[in-house]
Design a protein around this nucleic acid. Structure first.
Length: 434
DNA sequence: TCTGGGGTCCTAGGACCC
DNA sequence: TCTGGGGTCCTAGGACCC
């Protein structure tokens, strides 16, 4: 915690809805709700006119419709939001390079890292930034908090929202924080709040009573230690100007549950292409492929596998993800499916002009349906058949289809297989050595 | 006709290696 | 031969954030 109020948190007010109202004058002064507009949609952002009627983010759109039937329900125009966000972030960067965007509509700014920062003029600096944002974006408003730490700046930006500013005077942090609900501390969500409530902790003040060890016992190492400090407004986390991407994923909730494997596999193909495209655009590739499945009863499971080499290739991602689906019982239907990649590496892209079609050039795909394999892979399910005359493969009860793929993906060839033994009712996927 | 999509971070257990 | 500890990687799940 530094001695001057020089960390700013800026939060654009009702961002998606405000962009819509800016671009469509007929929506100004009216309730606007942006989010999923299908039967299973939820609200992403509600304008303040809609919040009056109790509409909140993450609320089901069906409920929002019931509460506020006269609102405009919009699906969202992310290109417009990204552009508005870019303009705002660019303006913030004029203050200092040390800005940390948290999302399209939020960022920390280390004002103290600016070349000409004067702590006595914080109010003027903030006023100039907010005026510029309004001018540059066609009237978007922002709420701002300034304090000696990220924690207090973030909390302060909520205090005079919307279109307001709050500066926490250095030295008053703990006093400002004490009377607030423990849930104002970022990271204290519903589950943690409930655990705390059960031991009588409601406010930040209450959170100062237990020792660090007691909080660790209650909430685990990481949360326990950090909450013990946060409760005392003790926070020296730096504003981080750049953060590397850790994962890339796509998911979709269907309007109706899907139990048809062929249909799900086709969706996986589409998602794999989407993930692949985004990996390539960012010069990334990853080793761990994750399939996310939400069942009809909302039970959610992930299945993942780690390849021996990073890939950004749509077909490898699709083959791998399909293999992960193969072992799952989907007879009651899935409401959501997702494909993700993590374990990312940024490799030097050696073939900038390659297209998806070009990728096929050096690929080798061998598919065989056999009772005995002609090639072997690690972990191949081979066991001795006591009733027969030797070693069998898979269940030993029938034909097994194996698809071996070799693809040349920098920095080297990637060999994957997908084995499907109907009698086992399970697919087996992974990598093999050539 | 309950409950989005895109992320991050943490925990915990097992495998494996030294 | 037995026991133990630590570190790292992998998988799965969960909490949380906007």
């Amino acid at each position: 915690m530094r001695s001057t109020a020089s960390i700013m948190h800026l939060d654009l007010d009702a961002f998606f809805a405000s962009v819509e109202q800016r671009d469509k004058p007929s929506l100004r002064g009216r309730p606007v709700i942006v989010g999923g507009i299908g039967p299973r949609g939820v609200v992403a952002t509600a304008s303040y006119e809609a919040r009056v009627h109790g509409v909140r983010s993450a609320m089901r759109t069906a409920e929002a419709r019931a509460r506020c039937p006269h609102a405009a329900f919009l699906g969202g125009r992310f290109d417009a939001y990204r552009e508005a966000s870019r303009i705002v972030m660019e303006r913030l960067r004029e203050e200092t390079e040390v800005i940390e965007p948290l999302s399209l509509d939020e960022a920390f700014v280390d004002l103290g890292a600016g070349p000409t920062f004067d702590p006595d003029r914080v109010e003027d600096i903030v006023a100039a930034i907010r005026a510029d944002i309004a001018n540059l974006t066609g009237g978007l408003t922002a709420s701002v908090g300034v304090a000696s730490s990220k924690l207090m700046a973030k909390i302060a930006s909520e205090i005079n929202k919307p279109d307001g500013v709050f500066v926490v005077e250095p030295g008053t942090e703990a006093d400002v924080l004490g009377p607030m609900q423990a849930t104002v501390i970022p990271g204290v969500g519903p589950a943690t709040a409930e655990r705390l409530r059960r031991v009588g902790i409601l406010t930040v003040e209450d959170l100062r009573s237990p020792s660090e060890d007691e909080l660790v016992r209650l909430l685990g190492q990481s949360s326990g230690r950090s909450l013990h400090r946060m409760a005392r407004a003790d926070d020296d986390r730096p504003v981080m100007a750049s953060r590397e991407t850790k994962s890339v994923s796509v998911e979709d909730t269907f309007e109706q549950d899907i139990s048809d494997r062929v249909q799900l596999e086709a969706i996986i193909e589409r998602m794999a292409r989407s993930v692949s495209g985004r990996l390539r655009k960012n010069g990334l590739s990853g080793r761990t492929v994750t399939l996310k499945m939400r069942h009809h009863d909302f039970e959610t499971h992930t299945r993942s596998t780690t390849l021996s080499n990073p890939t950004d290739n749509a077909r490898i991602l699709a083959t791998t993800a399909r293999g992960l689906l193969a072992g799952e019982d989907i007879s009651n239907g899935l409401r959501l499916l997702g494909v993700g990649v993590s374990g990312l590496a940024d490799w030097v892209q050696d073939d900038l002009f390659a297209t998806d079609e070009d990728d096929d050039v050096e690929d080798e795909v061998v598919e065989e349906t056999v009772t005995r394999p002609t090639r072997w892979y690690p972990g191949m399910d081979v066991h001795h058949d006591d009733h027969g005359d030797g070693w069998v493969w898979g269940s030993g009860l029938g034909r097994v289809t194996v698809r071996f793929e070799t693809r040349w993906t920098p920095p080297g060839p990637v060999h994957t297989f997908l084995a499907d033994d109907p009698a086992l009712g399970a697919g087996h996927t992974g990598t093999f050595d050539a």
